[in-house]
């Protein structure tokens, strides 16, 4: 019975997600789009975390992809739809090159450098006035994707989320899981089992960065606009992180669950207390880390185990 439920639940969720635009107006659709965007970022952040590396570079790669996409369209005349996979490719390639330098770092050092990366990208874009549009940003003048139809943009974002979920599923079900888990637990013993640590970290970093860049492409193509302040916003780093922590790390379901909850709460909070919502996120992160380090998923597992014991 539990098995059937576990199998039919994702199928039902996918069905609902696909059909949602049939029953929703523009505003709720835009909220849903936002939430899915953050979910995809949360899942990819978690995928790298499974190797033990804490990245603060989500906004950096997201922003890099955003600009790769919009500049390809505005300056290079690339079709909007093509600029989205291009953004992923560009961010992935950047991560590949940067990875050779920074994947030798661990712990805090890695985190700090990823945080700095985002700043570096932002400053470069900020100062390349003639090419990037500088601090004022850059607008897609014509040929905006889907003519801005919100249903289609919803499905586009859903497709982006699907890519993130499939990648995460691959990480969970293939030998990638063994490699990353071994690295996270003990690098020395991983090496002794033949794990080429650098190679697997590079794979995780490139794949997650490419998806983050692709989501950036989807984001800017949806709005037809990018500026350094919007696409490199710290929100794109902090919210996904909070979502994954809330839902439960080292899983695909956790970040999705956390994304749904925090996404809805944040939308409501934005209306209730403008700008105050950021304070609430902060408090939530602290509470989650202190009282349920395994997130909601961990809490659910614990409760179920306790219930199972009581039945015996």
């Amino acid at each position: 019975m539990n098995r059937t439920l576990a199998r039919s639940l994702p199928v039902a969720a996918i069905g609902v997600a696909i059909l949602l635009p049939m029953f929703m107006g523009d505003y709720p659709l835009q909220v849903a789009r936002n939430i899915m965007l953050y979910m995809a970022l949360a899942v990819t952040w978690d995928m790298l975390l499974r190797s033990g590396q804490i990245s603060f570079g989500i906004a950096g790669l997201f922003g890099l992809g955003s600009y790769a996409s919009i500049l390809a369209v505005v300056r290079g005349g690339m079709p909007g739809w093509l600029s989205i996979p291009f953004a992923g490719l560009f961010a992935g390639l950047a991560a590949f090159l940067i990875g050779f330098l920074i994947l030798r770092l661990r712990h805090t050092y890695f985190s700090i450098v990823t945080l700095a990366l985002g700043e570096i990208f932002r400053i470069i874009i900020h100062n390349m006035h003639d090419f990037s549009g500088g601090p004022e940003g850059i607008v897609v003048q014509q040929g905006i994707i889907f003519g801005g139809a919100s249903r289609n943009l919803y499905w586009l974002t859903l497709a982006g989320l699907a890519v993130a979920l499939l990648a995460s599923y691959w990480f969970e079900k293939s030998k990638v899981r063994f490699a990353l888990t071994a690295i996270r637990n003990n690098e020395i013993s991983a090496k002794s089992s033949g794990v080429n640590i650098f190679r697997w970290l590079l794979l995780a970093f490139v794949v997650t960065s490419a998806i983050q860049g692709m989501m950036g492409g989807i984001f800017v193509m949806s709005y037809g606009f990018a500026s350094p302040e919007t696409v490199f916003s710290a929100d794109f780093t902090l919210l996904p992180l909070a979502m994954a922590l809330l839902g439960g790390i080292h899983s695909t379901v956790g970040p999705i669950l956390g994304g749904l909850l925090l996404g809805l709460v944040s939308e409501w909070l934005k209306l209730q207390i403008p700008y105050g919502h950021l304070v609430v996120y902060g408090v939530m992160i602290v509470v989650v880390i202190l009282f349920m380090p395994q997130g909601l998923l961990g809490l659910a597992r614990k409760t179920m185990r306790a219930a199972g014991r009581n039945r015996k």
């Binding site: 030998k175 063994f178 071994a182 637990n185 020395i188 002794s192 033949g194 794990v195």
Partner: peptide, 28 residues
Amino acid sequence: IARTYQLIHPLENLSLIENVMVGSIFAR
């Protein structure tokens, strides 16, 4: 060349058999 460690850290989140599989997957 293989070795064991004095301080053993079983890989959390991997079951007993999965711990043993690691060397087979990556070394072989």
